[in-house]
């Protein structure tokens, strides 16, 4: 279980201006949940996610995982970045193995686990390829396989499908849902796309100016196809979220 208590993060820009990226955020996320973090650009989504990953230190408050406060990155939390972070100098297989290598797992076991995950994301035949030989969508699959193979029970994803085309995006969303269901891991997924949140999330946290302004249960039935999303409940949820996002009048992140 992840518990966030009064988490605040203030950045000092070179100009001397202070930006409150997170403003006394509190929430708890249970094991096995699929949570989407929604919000407009610059309103603290990445900052919250990076704080969860331990890549960013809070200026006040605390984040704890299973009661232990987060001090830095750890193997209990994996991350898929917004940028393309598949290491271009390693083969696809070596990329997926990397987390296991870092944990000191012997080579034979490593290879087996990595191959399994490559199969699961549909890249079984591409283990020996260089990342440059894959398309952007395939590289995202590699990143997802790497994060899952690392074995972390909590996976943090920062707009991983941002730059992809619509159909590829839908493919990967389905893949992610399958993997989530079959593994039961906790996934916290940043997006600014309401439709994506409706497809994926069990729960949507809406961030505005560094605060959580709404916590919505997305209780639609799966599969979340067009009809399901167009159901009265689906429309109600998207209207609520849209309201939060559009009724924006403050300057983003202003302290």
């Amino acid at each position: 279980m992840i518990s966030i208590t009064n988490a605040s993060c203030v950045f000092r820009h070179a100009s001397g201006r202070e930006v409150r990226a997170l403003d006394r955020i509190s929430s708890t996320i249970g094991d096995g949940e699929f949570v989407c973090l929604l919000g407009r650009s610059g309103h603290g989504k990445s900052t919250l996610l990076r704080s969860l990953a331990g890549l960013n230190t809070l200026t006040a408050g605390e984040i704890a995982v299973d009661g232990r406060p987060v001090k830095g990155p750890g193997i209990d939390r994996g991350m898929v970045f917004q940028e393309d972070t598949v290491f271009p100098w390693m083969t696809v297989q070596a990329n997926v193995e990397f987390g296991l290598l870092a944990q000191g797992i012997p080579a034979a076991e490593r290879q087996g686990v990595a191959r399994e995950w490559l199969d699961k994301v549909g890249l079984g035949r591409f283990g020996d390829s260089w990342p440059k030989e894959l398309s952007g969508g395939m590289r995202k699959r590699v990143a997802i396989a790497t994060a899952f193979a690392g074995g972390a029970p909590i996976l943090l994803m920062d707009e991983p499908f941002g730059p992809l085309d619509y159909v590829t995006r839908r493919d990967l969303q389905n893949l992610l849902i399958d993997l989530w269901r079959s593994t039961g891991r906790t996934i916290i997924f940043v997006t600014h796309d309401i439709e994506e949140a409706l497809v994926l999330a069990e729960r949507a946290l809406v961030l505005r100016a560094g605060r959580i302004v709404d916590d919505i249960r997305v209780d639609l039935t799966r599969p979340r196809d067009e009809e399901e999303r167009a159901s009265p409940r689906g429309i109600a949820i998207s209207k609520t979220i849209l309201g939060h996002l559009e009724l924006e009048q403050h300057t983003p992140g202003a302290a």
């Binding site: 890549l55 830095g72 939390r77």
Partner: peptide, 28 residues
């Protein structure tokens, strides 16, 4: 890009691992 090193660290890599598996090959 710094996210390479960050990505490695979220996968459990320590400073030495980041040095010789990320920085070194990345700067070749």
């Amino acid at each position: 890009h710094p996210s390479f090193a960050e990505s490695a660290s979220t996968l459990g890599a320590g400073p030495w691992m980041i040095f010789h598996r990320v920085s070194l090959p990345g700067s070749v």
